[in-house]
Each structure stands twice: as C-alpha cells, then as structure tokens.
C-alpha cells in the first residue's frame, strides 16, 4: 500500500492524542487549572490535528461531514462518530477540570471509553479488509490500541503503568510482524485463484493492460523501501519501545530532569510509532497486485 504521509500522521498523532485523553478521562493525572489546560491543549492538538491531516487525502474534503451518516455499516463512519463524541465529552470534562477545579468522573469515564473506541474503530478500518491479508488479523486492533495506551501513559506521566504498557505494546508489535509476514501466503489467494486459471497450470502475468501506470498500481503496489524493512523494524522497535523504557527507568531526581527525560521518551516513542506505521502501509500487500504480476 502507498504510505500516504497524511494517513501516517493521522493515525500516529490521533492515536497518541486519544491515548492521552483516555488517561485524562480516568483522572490520571488528576490535574486542574492551568496544568490541566496544558494537558488538554496537547491532547486536543494531537487528536484534532491528526483528524484534520486525515482529510488531506480526500478527493472532496468539503463533503467530509457526510461520513457521519453510515455508522451502521462502515467502520470509517463509526470512527468519525466516535471521534466527535469523544472530543465533545472530553471537552466538557476538560471545562470542569480547567475552570471549575472539579472532575466529573462519570463524564470522564464516558470520554475515556469513546477515546479508546476511536482508536479501535480506526484500526478496524484496516482490519476489516480481506484484500490486505497483513491487516486482516486480530493483532491489528491490538497493535493500534497498545500503541495508543503506551503513548498515552507516557504523555500523561503514568510512571507505574507506562513501562508495562510499553513492554506489552512492544511484544504485540513483534507478534504482529512475525504473523504478518506469512499472512499473504496463508490467505490462499494467488494469481491462480485471481484468474481462475490456476487449475490449468502455472499462471504468469504476460502483458499488463497498459504500458503506463494507473491509480491501482500507485495506491496498492508500493515496493520502494520494502528492501530496508528489517532495518526499519529495528529502528522502529528501538525508538518506540527500548529507548523510552530506558529513559523513564533512569533514576532521576529533580522535576526538571524528570520532565525532560519523559519529553525525550515521548518524542522517541512518537518517532518510532511513525516508522512502524510507515512499515504498516509500505509492507501491506493488496491482492489486486497479483493481477499485475506484482505484490
């Protein structure tokens, strides 16, 4: 799949933002006043910024509001609905924390739930696609959720939880890579089943429909960069999990140093998440490539 920057930025930033909102909704940290304002400003900048980035790849962004209508059948529509509900509910909760110094915990719980639901529905947009076997696995939502929770824990300063959530997310990431590598072969789809000619012998793409490229090849057949996949996986894993874990486990005294180390950990985690998400798209192979003798 073509790794569109808008979609990578959207899924990583909004995943981190909704992860932070999840923890804020649960009252972790139970901040009020100006400190609360800073936390919510960061969370909303990430979540809303990500959502806005996702509209950049639309052919008609001005009609994006219509995407709220088909929640009964479409995961993309459900994502839109969940995101708006989460942002509205958490907005109310934030008003209480920032201006009234109080935590309306029921509202916070509902907001936290919808924040996680937004990340889940985002992941289901990819997971539902049988055409992309590497995405069509239970580990896909697990990976999106674990990234969001680990990033949220880091950003919210949940010192006790963050190392565990990072370790879990790292383990899920490794499992996703391991299982994803064999997914296309396991799906059973080959050029033989794609053309129905496989029962007659070995099928080979002899001549493409056109000498030039087309939308399908640009969108679904992305082979550039796959050759560095193993190196990029190591970079992603080190940046997203190993380095942040080391940074937050360093025994540090003093508020400034501690905040600085957490900031570094968050930056490293976000960079790693972006590399991982780039690979998520770049390594995903769509079955339509088979018709062109490509993967």
């Amino acid at each position: 799949m073509h790794p569109a920057p808008s979609v990578i930025i959207f899924t990583t930033l909004s995943g981190l933002g909704f992860g932070l909102l999840f923890f804020l909704g649960l009252g972790q940290p139970a901040v009020t006043g100006f400190v609360a304002f800073v936390f919510y400003a960061i969370a909303y900048a990430l979540a809303v910024g990500g959502l806005l980035a996702s509209t950049f790849h639309l052919g008609h962004p001005e009609r994006a509001w219509k995407a709220f209508t088909q929640w009964k059948s479409s995961w993309l529509s459900r994502e839109g609905v969940c995101a708006v509900v989460a942002l509205l509910v958490m907005g109310l909760y934030a008003l209480g924390a920032v201006f009234m110094g109080s935590h309306w915990s029921l509202l916070g719980w509902i907001g936290a739930l919808f924040s996680l639901a937004t990340v889940f529905t985002t992941s289901m947009i990819y997971t539902q696609l049988k055409t992309i076997p590497r995405w069509n696995m239970e580990l896909t939502p697990a990976m999106f959720l674990s990234f969001s929770l680990a990033g949220g824990a880091l950003l919210s300063g949940a010192e006790a939880l963050a190392p565990w959530l990072l370790a879990i997310a790292g383990a899920i990431q490794l499992a996703y890579w391991a299982k994803g590598d064999g997914a296309f072969a396991r799906s059973g789809t080959t050029l033989g089943t794609a053309t129905g000619l496989g029962v007659r012998g070995d099928v080979r793409a002899f001549e493409p429909p056109h000498t030039g490229t087309n939308y399908l090849l640009r969108e679904f057949v992305h082979v550039v960069g796959r050759k560095h996949a193993q190196k990029l996986r190591m970079i992603a894993f080190a940046l997203a999990f190993v380095l942040p874990l080391l940074l937050i486990l360093i025994p540090a005294s003093g508020v400034v140093i501690k905040h600085f180390l957490v900031l570094l950990a968050v930056a490293s985690h976000l960079a790693g998440a972006m590399v991982s998400r780039w690979l998520f798209f770049a390594q995903a192979e769509h079955v339509v490539g088979l018709y062109y003798g490509k993967r």
């Binding site: 639309l58 052919g59 219509k66 995407a67 049988k130 055409t131 679904f220 769509h286 339509v288």
Partner: peptide, 12 residues
C-alpha cells in the same frame, strides 16, 4: 463521494 478511496481498498 468524498474520494476517501476505501472502497477501492476493499475491492479485490
């Protein structure tokens, strides 16, 4: 149509 492309992604 908003041109999100998801239908093309879902078509094998």
């Amino acid at each position: 149509c908003i041109g999100c492309g998801l239908c093309a992604w879902s078509c094998p």
